[in-house]
Amino acid sequence: MNGLIYFNSSKYSDLKIRCEGQEFNAHKIVLCGQSKYFSAMCDGDWKEGVDGVIELKEDDASVVKAMLHFLYRFDYDGSGNDQGRVSPMFFNSRVYSIADKYDVPALRLLAKEKFEEAVGTCWNMDDFVHVIPEVYDSTPPTDRGLRDIVVKVTHEHIKTLLEKKEFQYAIEETVGFAADIIRLMAGGGNLVRRKYECPNCNNF
């Protein structure tokens, strides 16, 4: 009846997910219904399907756990508290990235919300400047989700931020970030989308 209690439960578990030495009990019916990644993997004759074990390399175990938590309970703890003292900005940005990678659209929306909230309160903290390259590197350039939030907050507090040395580095090192800021400033605070207009027919 209550599917929520099966999070990480071995009961009826038909799939194990390993990540960074941790192992989670999972259920195909839960995962495959919400992520095309898992359904394609389980439907084909792949090694994972045969072994019943999915090894997620190159992912953070805490982030994977948050994703699984969401898949079972439709929410996760975005505060970063149970991750030691990881900044919620970082954590939610990672969750956003994993939701994009494994195609869980609902989680992506939730992560974005949580990220926006975190950035709104924590922009003046030291690690904000480290969040900028994180955001720009973890999603494809066309994904505006977190980028717009970062750019907007930066624009609002540009003077304060410019006083930080670390921020200067971020501007210089993060590809695309400076360009986004300029576009925003040129648009008078409104984000100007990169659009291509065909001079002949006005189609994009």
Binding site: K47, E48, K57
Partner: peptide, 14 residues
């Protein structure tokens, strides 16, 4: 196919 890891292929393409 049976020894191919979906995760690996996907991750590489990703």
């Amino acid at each position: 196919v049976s020894r191919l890891s979906f995760e690996e292929l996907y991750r590489n393409a990703y």
